[in-house]
Design a protein around this nucleic acid. Structure first.
Lengths: 113, 113
DNA sequence: TTTATATATTAGATATTTAGAATATTGTAA
DNA sequence: TTACAATATTCTAAATATCTAATATATAAA
């Protein structure tokens, strides 16, 4: 199969989303573009670190930029990114809920005090 | 913000998808459940390694299992997983396409031979 | 019980990712 | 030109993830 390479690229897209700070960046950009400074304040991380994360996201086509004077405005490059994130969040929540349900079931098995 | 923890969990879901072999596993399981042996043949990796990948996916609620005699059948635990994968694949393809388009544009700028 | 088959786990070596520090670049204004 | 603000890059060590090899467990059949 020649699409082993495609799987690799697909994995690197996922890898780009596999970081809490980067997911937070995506959430911040949901409402529209914003300059790096504003992002840095919202995320509470260093400018250098934020810039690194943004570089990874740029390289993988997750965000796009527009410069205006000193500021560089970042935006999500594709609405499908938020859709994918939403779906994964739902998978997570359903998994957590299933775990909680299991825990409750176990609880019910315990002998009365 | 207390949902920093949620971002972490969300990231670990993404991390689970951020591996070419695991994406291939997901693609194999699209058509329905199958035992580990069959998966191992399709993926061309060692049994032990496959089992490790499956363990990661189980822990993150991506797959579920059912034992029947000696065989353990794996299946995707949630149809949203394939939906999310599809969306990310589309993002990837659109990004690749945009890159190719850029390359073509550059090509057009080159002087005639 | 012993044996065989399918699957899971552990340990250790190697590779990849991450954050912080220092430094560089870009654009604007004095 | 120099100075400054916003952003990007490079380097490094620590943390994580991955693979291989060896070993363990579970189920069924003899």
């Amino acid at each position: 199969m020649a699409d082993r390479q495609l799987y690799r690229l697909h994995a690197s897209i996922c890898q780009t989303l596999a970081n809490a700070k980067r997911l937070e960046i995506i959430d911040q950009l949901r409402s529209g573009e914003m300059p790096v400074t504003v992002l840095a304040e919202a995320l509470e991380i260093s400018q250098a670190n934020l810039s690194q994360h943004l570089a990874v996201m740029r390289q993988n086509g997750i965000v796009a930029t527009r410069r205006e004077g000193l500021n560089v405005y970042y935006r999500l490059s594709n609405p499908k990114i938020t859709q994918a994130c939403d779906l994964m969040r739902q998978v997570l929540l359903e998994h957590l809920e299933a775990g909680a349900e299991l825990a409750r079931a176990e609880k019910r098995k315990e002998p009365r005090p």
